[in-house]
Design a protein around this nucleic acid. Structure first.
Lengths: 199, 199
DNA sequence: CGAATCGCTAAGCGCTTGCTTAGCTTGGCG
DNA sequence: CGCCAAGCTAAGCAAGCGCTTAGCGATTCG
């Protein structure tokens, strides 16, 4: 489906120079990490002088926050859009498949989203943590419903929720586009998740 | 020594000042990341002046390499020591349980091991990559044996190997000692891994 | 004893960092 | 035309970086 496989769209970031800075920052943060990335590096990826960055963003951290916030929202949107099955089984399979595929397809931004949380200010981290809790709840609800109707057998509900999310999230750490295709990985992981919980 | 790093034994690092620098570096790297950690921070955790670090280690990167190398070797040793069951089922359960427990118990060093690879020099990274391949092989062999004797049904062998390892490794990202105990987590994850592959 | 060695500190070097300042160019509009 | 705001650059500042140097006190040993 298009929501899952379509590339991330950044048209809402205006003007174009701000957008070039943002996408350049995503690449740089994913490659080297936030701390090892210099404002000079980000600016040069956008074809600008270092000072131009501060016309559009007040700080390097703010750039990270915009990326993190948008990335978290996109991931939650993908999860919710995939939560459409008729049975808990279909819902879980659809969500794990979509969430995994998203982390593979957008592994660059996913890496920033998942591994640079510590570089955010406490206020910005709190804002992002709200979205993270919603993501977790989305999976946990499907598991709860499956236990209720007898299709799932789950002893440790929070632990199993965490494990399933963890599996998809860790894709961002190791994924490389030359190794396997995102959609196929989504199918494999949906199957593994189902086997983990089915009664 | 901090409570976090005490479970691992570092007596082989001599003299004691070098050991204090190393364990201080583990805590600092795990907390802030390699790039955000200063040599002044590491030295002050060991109760020394910054210059004293260079009496024992030629560079900050070398300190990371010693930590990464020892951590990888410890993880591989734990896996091999747990590969003692009579059946593929027992072997896989034992290894996943031990590997997961290790990542929870030593999540501080595990974080450095898993997330600071990019800060190593190419030569040091290559040395560590050899151990990582051995870790992967250890799990893959148990799966292969289980498929051969019919106890496992695995369609995508490298993909499933990666998923099982990924599940344990990601524990280092989120684990906090206040949330759950390492041994219980090992048992849960061993069960999840078995359900993923059993025929 | 004197000389050498070990483990350490105070001071600081050369460089890079995030960010600021001053000023230029461009295009829209009366 | 003159004026101004938007978007940019060149230059640079204060602070902090990894790492080096010079030298000091304690210990070891011929």
């Amino acid at each position: 489906m298009s929501a899952v496989t379509s590339p991330l769209v950044w048209e809402h970031v205006q003007p174009a120079a701000a957008r070039r800075l943002l996408t350049g920052a995503i690449d740089a943060f994913a490659e080297r990490g936030f701390q090892a990335t210099t404002t000079r590096d980000i600016a040069s990826r956008a074809g600008m002088s270092p000072a131009a960055l501060y016309v559009h963003y007040p700080s390097k951290e703010r750039l990270l926050f915009e990326i993190s916030l948008y990335g978290h929202r996109a991931a939650l949107d993908v999860l919710r859009a995939a939560d459409t099955g008729d049975s808990p089984r279909d819902r879980l399979a659809g969500m794990v498949s979509a969430f995994t595929t998203w982390h593979a397809e957008h592994h660059t931004i996913a890496r920033v989203v998942q591994y640079e949380l510590a570089a955010l200010t406490p206020e910005h981290l709190a804002e992002v943590a709200t979205i993270r809790r919603a993501i977790s709840t989305q999976i946990e609800q499907a598991l709860t419903d499956g236990v209720s109707d007898g299709s799932f057998a789950v002893e440790d509900l929070p632990g199993t929720t965490l494990a399933i999310l963890s599996l998809s999230i860790d894709v961002a750490r190791w994924y490389s586009p030359t190794r396997r295709d995102p959609a196929g990985l989504g199918v494999l992981y949906a199957d593994l998740a189902l086997r983990m919980v089915q009664s």
